[in-house]
């Protein structure tokens, strides 16, 4: 009940901010601009259309996640509105969870708008609807939730600039860390090996939520991979949120 109130309030804050609409607008706008870009090539224009569209949805939803994630948590502390909540009979745990759920709801709405507009756009242009787009939605949403939880973690103890930098860096690392698999066999020194594996397992492996390529190329994705990726996402979010709660509980205002 209290978590819900905090979540809804967070959502309200996000949607009453113009930047939220601006980012959604840009996401939609750039996914439309894929039509323009696709006109410049010869051959499979639908492929280009989807590539550019999904990429812009990705980019702008990640921007929304990082922006709102950091802004909305840190702002509470910075503007001391957190006093308002924490002076009520509210557990600090509930504050973190409420924030997370509110941001999740925000992302859900933003993503729904962008993806459904783009799907309709594709439908009008090509006359086809690819149900795999739902899978894209779920995967991207999971990735965004991981980003949100990370931004909550950082803003629970750091400043917004640093938090944004940390979150963006972690996002970038998350998309390249899979390349570790290419050289892990070359590690011999046990200490190096330990650290390399430690980092590999510690950082979020976000590339597994990137199914844009498979989606556009119509590559099959096995159920096993889908479930394992989603489970990974849930585990990761839980772990990060638990650490955030741990830190936030200790925090003094």
């Amino acid at each position: 009940m209290k978590i819900r109130a905090i979540a809804l309030n967070t959502f309200k804050e996000a949607v009453r901010n113009k930047i939220f609409y601006l980012l959604i607008f840009f996401g939609v706008f750039f996914s439309f601009s894929s039509k323009l870009i696709s006109m410049l090539t010869i051959g499979d224009t639908l492929k280009i259309l989807k590539d550019v569209g999904f990429a812009s949805i990705n980019l702008f939803s990640v921007l929304i996640a990082i922006f709102t994630g950091i802004n909305l948590v840190y702002k509470e502390i910075e503007k001391k509105t957190v006093y308002f909540i924490l002076s009520k009979p509210v557990e600090r745990r509930d504050f973190i969870l409420g924030k997370f759920l509110g941001l999740a709801l925000t992302m859900f709405v933003a993503l729904t708008i962008m993806i459904s507009v783009f799907s309709i756009f594709i439908l009008l242009l090509s006359g086809t609807f690819d149900p795999f787009i739902l899978l894209y939605f779920i995967f991207l949403f999971t990735e965004l939730l991981i980003i949100i939880s990370i931004s909550i973690l950082f803003s629970s103890f750091s400043t917004p600039i640093l938090s944004s930098i940390f979150t963006i860096v972690l996002y970038l690392i998350g998309h390249v860390i899979w390349t570790f698999n290419e050289f892990k066999y070359k590690l011999i020194n046990p200490i190096e090996k330990f650290f390399a594996y430690f980092i590999y397992y510690l950082f979020p492996n976000l590339e597994k939520f990137n199914i844009k390529g498979a989606l556009v190329m119509n590559d099959p994705i096995s159920i096993k991979i889908i479930l394992s990726s989603l489970a990974y996402g849930i585990f990761y979010i839980s772990a990060i949120l638990l650490i955030s709660i741990h830190i936030f509980k200790r925090r003094e205002f």
């Binding site: 309030n9 309200k12 804050e13 009453r16 001391k80 509105t81 006093y83 308002f84 002076s87």
Partner: peptide, 10 residues
Amino acid sequence: PESPYYYDYL
């Protein structure tokens, strides 16, 4: 609280 710390969008 000492200073008005409220959500100004509400």
